[in-house]
Design a protein around this nucleic acid. Structure first.
Length: 475
DNA sequence: ATAGGGTTAG
C-alpha cells in the first residue's frame, strides 16, 4: 500500500464504531512510515476525531512535520464536531497567529463553533475576515453565516446574507427557516416556506423546520394544515421528529387528548422527548389527568431525570394540589436523580462571563448580590411574584426564594444590566431550558428598566421586550 | 487518472 491507498481506506472508516478499524489501519500506516504524510495524517486525525477520540487526533496532528490548510481545518473541525467550541476557537486563534492560511472550508468550520458559543462579537469578526479575503462565492460558507447569525440572535443579518446570495441550496432555505423558528417568528416561517416551494423542492429537514417553526411561533392551525397536506401528498419521508412537532403543536393549543391519540396512531414508538413535550403542554394548560398518565410513562422510562419530576410537581402546584407536590418531591428523594448543572453566560467585550447556580466564587459576587436585591425590590413593587414551585428542595419558603434568586440566568441578566449602557440588548445564553420563574423575572426586568433581553436557552431564543416574550409563554 | 478538511435537524 502507498499513501494513496491509506488516504482512501481511512476515509471509509467513518463513525464511532470504526475506532477499531482506524487503529488497525493506523498501525499499518505507522509501520510503513506514512504517519507524517500530509494527506494520510490529515485523514487519520479526521477519522480519530469522527470516532470521538480527539486526544489521539490531536496527537497525530501535533506529530505532523508540516501543517497546511487542510490538516489545520481537520483538527479544528474535530473539536467543533464534538461540540468543543471553546477549544476549537482557541486552537484557531493559535494557528491563525502562527500564520495558518484559511480557505472557505476553514471559515465554514469555525463559524459552526461560533454558532455553538452564540458569540456575536467573534462571529462578526470572522465575517470581517471572510469579507477581507474576497473569496469567490461558496454556498456552504454563506449557509454557515446564515446559521451563525441566527444562533447568535441576529436574524436580520441572517436574512441579509440570505437575500444577497446569487444561488441558494436547500440548506440555505432550511437554515433560514430554522432561524425564524428559533426566534418564534411563525408567520415568516410560513411565508418563506411558500416562496421556497415555488423555487426548490423541500426535503425532510425543511418540513421539520416548518412544523417546528409553526409550533414555536404559535401558528397551530397553519402547522396542522401543512402536516395534513404532507401526509396526503406522501412524497416526503416523515420521521419521528415530524410527529414530535405536531404533537407539540396539538399540546400547545390544549388539544391534549388529540396529542395522545396521535402518539398511539403514529408509526413510531414514542421516545422520552415526545412524552416530555406533552408533559410540558400539560403544565402550560394545567391538565392533571393527562399529565399524570404522561408523567408515569416518563418516570418509568427515565427514572433518573430530575426535570420530569420538576414539571409534574409544577402541574400539581398550579392546580393547588400541595399534597401531591409533596409526594413527588419525596419520590424524587428516593430515586437517585441527576440534573445537568445549569449555567448561563454573557459575552461582554469579547470576554465570556459564566455563572452557575448560587455562584459563590464569582469575583464580582458582592456587586451582583447587591444589584439583584435592588432589582428584586423594584420588580416586586411592580407585581412580580416568585414561583416557589420551581424549587423542589425541602426548605422553607424564604429559603426557596433565595434559591430562585441564585439561578444562573438571573445572575447573568443582572450582570448584563450592570455592565452595559441603556438601549443595548442584554444577550444571555443558557445550557438548559429556562425556568418559569427566571422567564418571568426577565419579563419584569425588560419592562421596569426598559431593556430588551435576548435569552437563548437550549432550544430557542426568547426576546423579551416591555414585559412580553416572543415565545408567547410556551416553550 | 487515482488522495486529506465543510453547511441545515422535536
Amino acid at each position: 500500500p502507498n499513501e494513496f491507498t491509506f488516504a482512501t481506506v481511512l476515509t471509509s472508516c467513518s463513525g464511532p464504531q470504526s475506532i477499531h478499524q482506524v487503529k488497525q489501519v493506523h498501525s499499518l500506516v505507522a509501520k510503513t512510515n506514512f504517519e507524517s504524510h500530509m494527506f494520510v495524517g490529515s485523514s487519520l486525525l479526521d477519522m480519530y476525531a469522527k470516532a470521538g477520540n480527539i486526544q489521539e487526533a490531536r496527537r497525530v496532528f501535533d506529530m505532523l512535520p508540516e501543517r497546511d490548510t487542510v490538516s489545520c481545518t481537520a483538527i479544528i473541525s474535530g473539536y467543533a464536531q464534538l461540540g468543543l467550541d471553546d477549544e476549537a476557537l482557541d486552537l484557531f486563534r493559535q494557528l491563525y497567529s502562527a500564520g495558518m492560511q484559511c480557505n472557505y472550508v476553514t471559515f465554514t468550520t469555525l463559524l459552526t463553533s461560533l454558532s455553538g458559543l452564540a458569540s456575536l462579537d467573534y462571529g462578526k469578526q470572522v465575517h470581517g475576515l471572510i469579507l477581507r479575503k474576497e473569496l469567490p462565492f461558496f454556498v456552504v460558507l454563506q449557509n454557515s453565516l446564515i446559521d451563525m447569525y441566527s444562533k447568535c440572535g441576529k436574524l436580520l443579518y441572517s436574512r441579509r446574507v440570505f437575500d444577497h446570495m446569487p444561488q441558494r441550496s436547500t440548506i440555505s432555505w432550511n437554515a433560514m427557516l430554522m432561524g425564524y423558528g428559533r426566534h418564534g417568528i411563525g408567520h415568516e416561517v410560513v411565508q418563506l416556506f411558500r416562496t421556497m416551494t415555488e423555487e426548490v423542492k423541500p426535503d425532510s429537514v425543511t418540513l421539520l423546520a416548518v412544523l417546528s417553526g409553526c409550533s414555536h411561533g404559535g401558528l397551530v392551525d397553519e402547522g396542522l394544515d401543512i402536516f395534513d397536506l404532507i401526509v396526503k401528498e406522501q412524497n416526503a419521508v416523515l420521521s419521528i421528529g415530524h410527529y414530535g412537532c405536531v404533537i407539540d403543536l396539538l399540546g400547545r393549543s390544549g388539544r391534549l387528548q388529540k396529542a395522545l391519540d396521535l402518539i398511539q396512531d403514529m408509526p413510531f414508538e414514542p421516545t422520552p422527548a415526545i412524552w416530555g413535550s406533552l408533559l410540558g403542554a400539560c403544565r402550560v394548560h394545567v391538565n392533571v389527568s393527562v399529565g399524570e398518565v404522561v408523567a408515569q410513562k416518563l418516570l418509568d422510562m427515565e427514572p433518573g431525570n430530575a426535570g420530569n419530576y420538576v414539571i409534574l410537581s409544577n402541574i400539581y402546584a398550579a392546580a393547588g394540589m400541595w399534597k401531591d407536590v409533596f409526594r413527588v418531591r419525596n419520590l424524587m428523594l428516593e430515586k437517585t436523580v441527576t440534573k445537568e448543572p445549569g449555567q448561563s453566560w454573557i459575552i461582554l467585550d469579547k470576554v465570556i462571563h459564566t455563572f452557575r447556580s448560587s455562584d459563590r466564587f464569582h469575583p464580582r459576587k458582592k456587586d451582583i448580590d447587591a444589584k439583584i436585591k435592588e432589582i428584586y425590590v423594584d420588580i416586586k413593587a411592580a407585581g412580580f411574584v416568585p414561583n416557589l414551585s420551581c424549587v423542589l428542595h425541602d426548605v422553607d419558603d424564604e429559603q426557596k426564594e433565595r434559591m430562585l434568586l441564585g439561578h444562573s440566568e438571573k445572575l447573568a441578566v443582572t450582570f448584563g444590566l450592570m455592565n452595559t449602557p441603556p438601549g443595548l440588548t442584554i444577550r444571555v445564553m443558557k445550557n438548559l431550558r429556562i425556568c418559569v420563574d427566571c422567564h418571568n423575572f426577565a419579563k419584569f426586568v425588560s419592562k421596569i428598566y426598559g431593556r430588551e433581553i435576548s435569552l437563548r436557552d437550549k432550544n430557542r431564543f426568547h426576546l423579551l421586550t416591555d414585559g412580553a416574550c416572543t415565545c408567547g409563554d410556551y416553550w
